[in-house]
């Protein structure tokens, strides 16, 4: 089961990110993960939140351009070699990663989450599961 990620277009200028975080805070939307990419004059904020549909709606009302897409989230042990083992499975399954980012989990669980964007989410998921990988669901992510 893939997880919904929201990608938000942001201008690369002071205050652009503040406006977005302000909108999310104002509607009590809880962010579970955040990654920023930037070019010289614009950027994209990629976020995973507790209520993606509401988040997209409130962002739209506040004149943000955003879209909803699917990512694969995998939990790994937060220890040396944890990511290496996971990436090995991607290589074995011949899944190409478009981009990825990490969210560290709670100290108590000793785990971290890796978030992957791939070209064909469903096909990639099937191949990764067949290699024995557990892909987190939206509900799982909310429990982290």
């Amino acid at each position: 089961m893939s997880v919904k990620q929201i990608s938000v277009f942001l201008e690369n200028k002071p205050g652009a990110l503040k406006k977005m975080t302000g909108v999310l805070a104002g509607h009590e939307i809880d962010m579970r993960a955040l990654s920023m990419v930037e070019t010289r004059d614009f950027g994209i904020a990629r976020i995973i939140v507790d209520d993606p549909i509401s988040a997209v709606n409130v962002l739209k009302e506040a004149d943000f351009v955003s879209n909803l897409n699917s990512v694969l989230v995998v939990e790994i042990p937060d220890e040396p070699g944890g990511l290496d083992k996971l990436i090995n499975i991607f290589a074995d399954a011949e899944v190409n990663i478009e981009y990825m980012y990490a969210v560290s989990g709670h100290k108590s669980t000793k785990s971290a989450c890796m978030i992957f964007r791939v070209a064909d989410t469903k096909a990639a998921e099937a191949r990764l599961v067949s290699k024995g990988l557990k892909i987190l669901t939206q509900d799982d992510v909310m429990k982290i």
Binding site: F9, V37, I44, V65, N67
Partner: peptide, 13 residues
Amino acid sequence: MTPEMFTDNIGEI
């Protein structure tokens, strides 16, 4: 930027 022209892929933009 418009919703129609936006994509998550920075290279495409």
